[in-house]
Simulated scan of single mutants.
Amino acid sequence: MNEDYHVPTSAPVYECAYCGRPFARERFRALHRGLEHASDLDDDEVEQFRDAYSEEAESIGMFRLKALAALVLVYFGLLMIYATL
């Protein structure tokens, strides 16, 4: 294991087979492999990367929608407070 990363001994570790970097989740390892070691991947690892990338894109999209909704609520809340003063 690489000495640059401090991983608790009780935590599950998913280590990259190409560089030895530890990850907390398999999805993070799949994303790392696809981005850093794309030319070395076999078909199964490419499929894992695509699935992880798709899942990550969905999560980011949902976060953006929630952030936009929060901004709209804050904006209109402040607008209503200003209108009542």
Score class of each variant (00 low, 15 high):
23 F>Y: 09
15 E>M: 06
63 F>K: 12
13 V>D: 08
12 P>E: 13
39 S>Q: 13
73 L>G: 00
82 Y>T: 11
44 D>Q: 14
72 V>M: 04
53 Y>V: 03
60 I>D: 02
63 F>Y: 04
52 A>N: 03
21 R>H: 00
75 Y>L: 11
62 M>A: 12
69 A>Y: 01
65 L>Y: 08
45 E>F: 06
73 L>K: 14
27 R>Q: 08
61 G>L: 01
38 A>N: 11
39 S>F: 14
1 M>R: 07
43 D>K: 06
25 R>E: 03
9 T>V: 14
35 L>T: 14
31 L>C: 02
53 Y>M: 04
40 D>S: 15
16 C>G: 05
44 D>F: 09
83 A>T: 06
34 G>H: 08
69 A>R: 07
28 F>M: 07
66 K>R: 08
8 P>R: 06
71 L>F: 02
9 T>E: 13
74 V>E: 07
75 Y>E: 08
69 A>E: 10
46 V>N: 09
77 G>P: 01
73 L>W: 03
66 K>A: 10
73 L>I: 04
43 D>M: 03
76 F>N: 09
30 A>M: 09
60 I>S: 03
42 D>H: 11
85 L>V: 07
16 C>M: 02
34 G>R: 12
38 A>F: 12
18 Y>F: 15
51 D>S: 13
55 E>V: 05
47 E>Q: 13
50 R>N: 08
23 F>M: 04
41 L>G: 09
16 C>P: 04
15 E>F: 01
47 E>V: 13
21 R>T: 01
22 P>D: 00
11 A>F: 14
53 Y>R: 14
11 A>Q: 14
56 E>C: 01
48 Q>L: 15
43 D>A: 09
48 Q>G: 08
19 C>D: 02
44 D>T: 10
49 F>V: 10
17 A>M: 15
58 E>W: 03
42 D>P: 02
58 E>Q: 10
83 A>I: 12
76 F>A: 06
83 A>H: 14
68 L>E: 11
33 R>Q: 15
62 M>D: 08
7 V>Q: 05
59 S>Q: 13
62 M>Y: 13
56 E>K: 09
60 I>M: 11
1 M>L: 09
25 R>I: 03
28 F>N: 11
68 L>C: 01
28 F>C: 09
82 Y>D: 05
68 L>R: 14
52 A>R: 06
8 P>M: 04
65 L>S: 11
13 V>E: 13
19 C>F: 00
54 S>P: 05
72 V>G: 00
75 Y>W: 13
66 K>G: 00
17 A>C: 15
72 V>P: 00
26 E>Q: 10
4 D>W: 11
77 G>A: 00
4 D>Q: 05
66 K>E: 06
50 R>D: 08
32 H>S: 02
15 E>G: 06
27 R>V: 15
16 C>K: 13
67 A>R: 07
70 A>Q: 13
39 S>C: 13
50 R>F: 09
31 L>T: 04
23 F>R: 03
63 F>E: 09
41 L>K: 04
